[in-house]
């Protein structure tokens, strides 16, 4: 059976908010190392890969591998009943028809219990190759969200270029063009504001802003975001969570003239 207790319901609420535009139905794969999820969007352009390590829960128990096939819209409806600060416990039998969610407030004078029906989802898993990315950029997630939003007003696509000058986000549309350059920045007192650029070779790739805008829905999960790029491979956008848990998005580039 599965029993996984989260100190704050906010984490699961934010995870579901972050992925439900991209994916409507998916399996939450539970095993003794934690709860994972991998799913493509309908058009097979983007992929989300999330893993909440067992250490992110206290306690965590999962005796055997269990796939919880969940409609994220339905899960969100149930999670709306949880306050951000509630303690959230997920429970499921070994071959479950439902997942049980319990929300307790901090003073333990309210306990809400919900059963969410599960569905059979035949989901393909993709092997994500280990990649030595040519460029890695860490920046405030709010900054990335702002850049994505601002450029979306101009164009459908953005070209992210990384060279020894720094990183630039450029786009061109009917009304004109825009370009945002970021340079390395270190603030010892406020590391959340740091911009770090690590590059082994120059990279320039073009991506659809619509998907980047979707990824930015995860901004509330982490103050920093990491962009990893190599020429002619999907972009990885990573929001690191506590206890080595993570939510990663992959986006196939636009290629060719």
């Amino acid at each position: 059976m599965l029993e996984a207790r989260l100190e704050q319901a906010a984490l699961l609420k934010k995870v579901v908010d972050a992925i439900k535009e991209l994916v409507q139905e998916c399996n939450f794969d539970c095993n003794d190392s934690g709860i994972g999820l991998q799913a493509m969007d309908n058009s097979h352009v983007a992929l989300v890969s999330m893993f909440l390590k067992s250490e992110s829960f206290s306690p965590f128990r999962c005796d055997r591998n269990i796939a919880l096939g969940i409609n994220l819209n339905a899960l969100q409806k149930v999670l709306r009943a949880a306050q951000n600060e509630d303690i959230l416990t997920l429970k499921a039998e070994d071959a479950p028809d439902v997942v049980n969610l319990v929300f307790e407030n901090a003073t333990a004078d309210r306990i809400s219990e919900y059963d969410l029906k599960l569905m059979d989802i035949d989901q393909e898993h993709l092997g994500i190759p280990d990649t030595d990315y040519a460029a890695q950029i860490s920046m405030p997630s709010s900054e990335f969200q702002r850049i994505t939003r601002d450029l979306s007003a101009i164009s459908e696509s953005v070209t992210i270029e990384c060279n020894k000058e720094g990183v630039s986000f450029a786009c061109e549309g009917d009304i004109g063009k825009g370009n945002i350059k970021l340079r390395q920045y270190t603030n010892v007192d406020k590391p959340a504001e740091n911009v770090e650029v690590n590059m082994t070779e120059p990279v320039a790739l073009t991506f659809a802003l619509k998907y980047l805008g979707n990824f930015c829905k995860a901004s509330g999960l982490s103050e920093q975001v990491r962009l990893c790029l190599s020429n002619e491979v999907p972009l990885m956008v990573e929001y690191a969570l506590a206890n080595n848990s993570y939510i990663r998005f992959y986006l196939a580039p636009k290629i060719g003239d």
Binding site: S43, V45, L47, H125, L126, S157, A252, K254, I255, D257
Partner: peptide
Amino acid sequence: DRSQKSILGFFQKK
């Protein structure tokens, strides 16, 4: 114009 690639062109099905 550039064309949007599929993620399946990069990551193989397991």
